[in-house]
Design a protein around this nucleic acid. Structure first.
Length: 465
RNA sequence: GGCGCGGUAGCCAAGUGGUAAGGCGGAGGUCUGCAAAACCUCUAUGCAUCGGUUCGAAUCCGAUCCGCGCCUCCA
């Protein structure tokens, strides 16, 4: 089946055809490392993770680049306020960003270029734009891109530029521009920049924001590549500007498919510190939820849909994941290490439905529906005793194949320690003697140690509570 | 004003012409000393509202109401 994506550029579902057979070049706008990323940021990175994992599932070799914006107004201000160097300031947020990605089981990208490591590439790109006459230097030494020289400007965002006007949201320091919609490629140094400055043909200064993505994507992916993603808010001006400066410089199409992820809201409202509904990943983990519970919630709503994040949803995710874990454990137990045989029909069907759903612009709800139907059919078959070890092994292989996309299964939990096993043995004796009060007392004692006792037809089992 | 998104059960959420997936929650039941898990039955005669097209519409068309986003550096 054909893989299709909703392409912002065409505003329709386009069949995905990579520029190079079997390979996907993917650029995903990454974090500005001036604070701890919040769960809304991670919603986007989760979408990108699902995208890359599904592309790999489909057999593509994926080269993903995620940039780290480590020089902009906010990082400079943060470093100054704390009285540390820009690098020292951003490094801690880079570190925690990668820790958070791990917590969420997000697969690493192939490249994480930092803007400050690529200033020469940016300068070179700006020079190309100057040579082509689409950029100009203002009196203060800043360089701007002239959108009047790029007729296709506004194509991505479908914006009518006549509606743009100089107003409150246009920064005060940009009065030197020919056109209010022209954007900075290079920003001349000013005193707020402190020691943050690079030499350039136009004087000391620092790169504008948009240019880093063009320069770094071209360096790692080439002048034309397949997919570029980001939050909807990046559509304009950021991605529009990227297209303008990239295509004006190279004369080639920049990106074939633009995918944009909708925002996350909390309790029906935009996240904001004043509303008290602003959460970093660390905040949520601190409330006792696991990374994969957050992963499930962030992943389970289609990426172009508003995601309303609530703690109730997180609790529902926990229950759903328990069901998944339980099923996996049953399959593992039934397969008992036997060589995997052919998967049963209910697993094959789930795999087909899963892929058919994901093919359609990553329809995760349909995909999860297929997964849970598989769990239901599988449990039923297991209850009926019609699943032998090789069949269970085959089903398990299918489940793991789905999970290479979903990333929800975790390594099998710890096994009970000697003390817990001792108590369980005592309880079994009490049960055999029909000493129910003692059996129940031992159950409670085990629970206090973190173990839940399940009396199955095959005898008691201990499960991490 | 321009561009765009959305309103489906208690909650979350698929479904873009053929008679409402899935998850969570709830009720009852099977199993069970109890519990857990699993399984079974039930939980939207209806998909914001009103019209229209059609043999047939949550799905197409028109209008209306409501909520929301972007429109210069916010994922």
């Amino acid at each position: 089946m054909a893989l299709r994506f909703y392409n912002t550029l065409t505003r329709q579902l386009d069949t995905f055809e990579p520029l190079e057979e079997g390979r996907v070049r993917l650029y995903t706008c990454g974090p500005t490392v001036y604070h701890y990323a919040h769960i809304g940021n991670f919603r986007s990175y989760m979408f990108e993770d699902l995208l890359r994992r599904y592309l790999r599932f489909k057999g593509f070799r994926v080269t993903q680049v995620m940039n780290l914006t480590d020089v902009d107004d906010k990082t400079i201000r943060g470093a100054r306020e704390r009285g540390v160097s820009l690098n020292e300031y951003t490094q801690q947020y880079k570190d925690t960003f990668f820790e958070d990605l791990k917590t969420l089981n997000i697969e690493p990208a192939e490249h994480y270029p930092a803007a400050t490591d690529h200033v020469p590439e940016m300068i070179a790109l700006i020079e190309r734009l100057m040579e082509k006459g689409v950029a100009y230097r203002s009196d203060d030494g800043s360089v701007y891109f002239s959108i009047a020289k790029f007729p296709a400007y506004g194509r991505l965002a479908h914006l009518d530029l006549s509606g743009l006007r100089a107003g409150a949201r246009v920064a005060q320091d940009e009065y030197e521009k020919d056109n209010v919609a022209d954007f900075a490629l290079w920003k001349a140094w000013d005193e707020n920049d402190g020691e943050v400055a690079w030499d350039s043909p136009w004087g000391r200064g620092r790169p504008g924001w948009h240019i880093e993505c063009s320069a770094m994507s071209m360096k790692y992916l080439g002048e034309s590549f397949d997919i570029h993603t980001g939050g909807v808010d990046n559509m304009f001006p950021h991605h529009e500007d990227e297209i303008a400066q990239s295509e004006a410089a190279t004369g080639k199409p920049f990106v074939k498919y633009w995918l944009h992820c909708a925002h996350l809201i909390v309790d029906g409202r935009k996240m904001s510190k004043s509303l008290g509904n602003f959460f970093t990943l660390r905040d949520v983990i601190g409330r006792g939820f696991s990374g994969r519970e957050v992963r499930y919630v962030l992943m389970a709503t289609h990426y172009r849909q508003w995601l309303n994040f609530t703690f109730d949803t997180l609790r529902a995710a926990r229950a759903a994941l328990d069901r998944l874990d339980e099923f996996r454990a049953r399959l593992e137990k039934t397969s008992a290490g036997a060589a995997a045989g052919p998967a049963p029909a209910w697993a094959d069907e789930a795999l087909d439905r899963f892929a058919a759903a994901m093919d359609e612009d990553l329809n995760i709800s349909g995909a999860l529906g297929a997964l849970f139907d598989m769990i239901h059919a599988g449990n039923k078959a297991l209850d009926g005793g019609t699943v032998d070890a090789p069949t269970a092994g085959g089903a398990l292989a299918t489940l793991r194949a789905l999970d290479r996309v979903l990333g929800l299964l975790q390594e099998t939990g710890e096994t009970a320690d000697a003390a817990a096993r001792e108590l369980a043995a005592l309880r079994l004796k009490a049960r055999e003697a029909k000493n129910w009060p003692e059996a129940d007392r031992l159950r409670k004692e085990l629970l206090a140690l973190g173990w839940l006792v399940k009396d199955t037809p095959q005898g008691p089992e201990l499960k991490k509570a």
